[in-house]
Amino acid sequence: MSQHAHYRAAHPLIFVFTHYVNLISMIGLAFTGFFIHYPFFVWSMGLARSIHFMLMFILIINLTARIILSFWVKDALLLGSNVVDTDIKNWLPQKENKHQFLETVKYYLFLRKEHVISGKYGSLQKTAYLATIPITYAMAYTGFALYGPAQHWALAPFFNAGTAAVGGLMAMRMIHYFGMWIIIVFTMVHAYLANIHGIAPTKIMFAWVETKPEGH
């Protein structure tokens, strides 16, 4: 939103880095995932699977690190602000978010004119971001379950129990497959909404270039 400043204080370098890791590993996972689902050109399945595994570990470690860092790293909690506090507070309910969820939905459905007041992240945005955490872990779990049955490793029962609960490996495969589509749709909506009011968010998240409000 162009009225707002996008300061580095809101997005410390370490989170720019974790955002990059997220993006790259998700693109790689989707690509290799599609290939494993249906090999659409001649390439090594073994290599595709190895890359898929490696990126999964990177994504999961990155996500876990990002969660831990949120308790240590300080950043701005409000848009256009340089006042910093612990990042986790961004993810907890803020008083700025109160009573804003429906209003935000209304705004995006053209049912209201003004953009709502919120914290750095709106309540809709916050919910969506938080939802990616269990989805990502679930993708890792379902992936392990698909790979797991043949592996006689210590954790196999943990994954096989899930397979039994969902009704077998075919059901598990479909869950994994549709999970990927959820992540793809999320990414599309995320990229769109982040940039609908100008590319300042992209500048700060990718190039770490600040945008100062006009007239300041």
């Binding site: 162009s2 053209f110 004119k113 003004e114 007041i117």
Partner: peptide, 20 residues
């Protein structure tokens, strides 16, 4: 639709929450 309603250049911000 957003472009047509002029939202892409930055929407008007509310100054006080509607709920409040």
């Amino acid at each position: 639709a957003s472009a047509a309603t002029g939202r892409t250049s930055g929407p008007p911000m509310e100054t006080e929450k509607a709920w409040d």
